[in-house]
Amino acid sequence: MASFPAVLQSEWTKIRSVRSTIWTLALTFLITLVVGGLLSLVTKLNFEEFTEGSSTPFDATGTAFSGILLGELAIIVFGVLAVGNEYSSGMIRVSLAAVPQRATLLLGKAAVLGALALAVSLATAFITFFTGQAILGSHSTTIGSDNVLRAVIGAALYLTMLCLFAAGVTAMLHNQTLALGVLVPFFFLLSPILSAVPYAKNVARYFPDYAGSRMLTVYEQSGQPYGPWAGFFICLAWTVAAIAGGILVLKKRDA
């Protein structure tokens, strides 16, 4: 029977030994930072035009995080690859032979993935925020302003939970290609489309991406069904359900 610390060490070794997973984490950082910086620059150069007639305060934090949508894609791919590589290579059989306790195996993998994703996401969120504010200049905000620190930390938690959600879905499907085929259309096609449909948007507002994005909100807008903290718990519930589903499928299906 493998101890949990041994499982954590094993999972850490697996992740850092596969270059594709490390590159996707690096892309999460680079894409979020670069796109956010470029859009902050465009906003600064066209500030009067962009804010003309606006009834809400300018959201300097949201502008800095404009690239997080593409960053989501990279960290979802990271979660999928970190779990799916074992199935595509057949190494899952070796892992299960070493750790017969299937729940322990997946929880250990989730713990390592979550810790690594959170570390990268925190660095991404804070560096992206401060870079964006430096570019915005006189239109910037500060980390000590109302709701800003919560939004920055919320961005990191949001990316981390998306990573773990993707990992749980991949564990349920046992196939990284199928997982990407489900997750990418769901987050980047189905969810945005349903959010724009009058009746369907009442359901889409409780999808993990919409709920998680509420955590980045600095200024509350009218017509929103819930606030940032409710969004956090909804996104967390989706994440826990995905991991639990992965454990259940792993226990009931052959590798």
Rank of each mutant, 00 (worst) to 15 (best):
F50Q: 13
F130P: 00
A60N: 05
E86V: 07
T128N: 01
T131K: 04
A110D: 03
F50I: 10
A64T: 02
N46S: 11
A151P: 01
L105R: 09
F126K: 10
E72I: 12
M91Q: 12
T141G: 10
S95Y: 04
L105E: 03
L106T: 02
N46D: 11
A134T: 14
F58E: 08
V80W: 04
S54L: 14
V112G: 00
T61N: 14
L116F: 10
Y87T: 01
V18L: 15
T128L: 02
T13F: 13
E48K: 11
K109R: 12
T24D: 01
D146S: 15
G108F: 03
T24W: 06
T131V: 12
L118P: 00
T13Y: 13
G67C: 06
G67V: 05
L149H: 09
P57W: 08
T56C: 11
S55N: 15
E48S: 14
F50N: 12
S17T: 12
H139P: 01
L106K: 06
L96T: 11
G154V: 07
L96G: 01
S17M: 07
G71P: 04
M91G: 13
A26F: 13
A117W: 11
P100H: 00
A115S: 09
S17G: 12
T28W: 07
F78S: 07
I127M: 06
G37Y: 06
R102A: 00
A119S: 06
I92Y: 07
A74E: 05
T131I: 07
L116N: 04
D146F: 11
L69R: 15
I75R: 10
P57D: 09
G114C: 04
S88R: 14
L149E: 06
I135S: 07
A134R: 14
D146T: 15
A115P: 03
A97S: 14
G137N: 09
G108S: 02
L81M: 10
A123D: 03
A117M: 03
V34L: 09
T28M: 10
R19T: 13
R93P: 04
E72S: 15
A134G: 12
V34A: 06
G79Y: 00
A125N: 04
F29L: 05
S55Y: 12
V35P: 06
K109T: 03
I15H: 09
S121L: 02
F50C: 02
K44P: 05
V94T: 15
K109G: 02
R150M: 13
G67R: 03
S54C: 08
V42Y: 11
L38S: 10
I75M: 11
L27I: 13
K44Y: 09
V35T: 10
V152W: 01
A103D: 02
N85C: 09
A64V: 08
L38T: 11
A111V: 04
G114I: 00
L81R: 07
T56F: 15
G144D: 14
S140G: 15
I75W: 08
F58P: 00
N46M: 05
T43G: 08
A60D: 06
L41P: 07
L105K: 08
T32E: 05
T104F: 00
S145N: 15
S138Y: 10
T104C: 01
F58Q: 05
I76M: 10
M91D: 08
E86P: 03
L113I: 11
G53T: 08
Q133G: 07
G79K: 01
A98W: 05
P100G: 08
A74T: 09
A60R: 05
V18M: 13
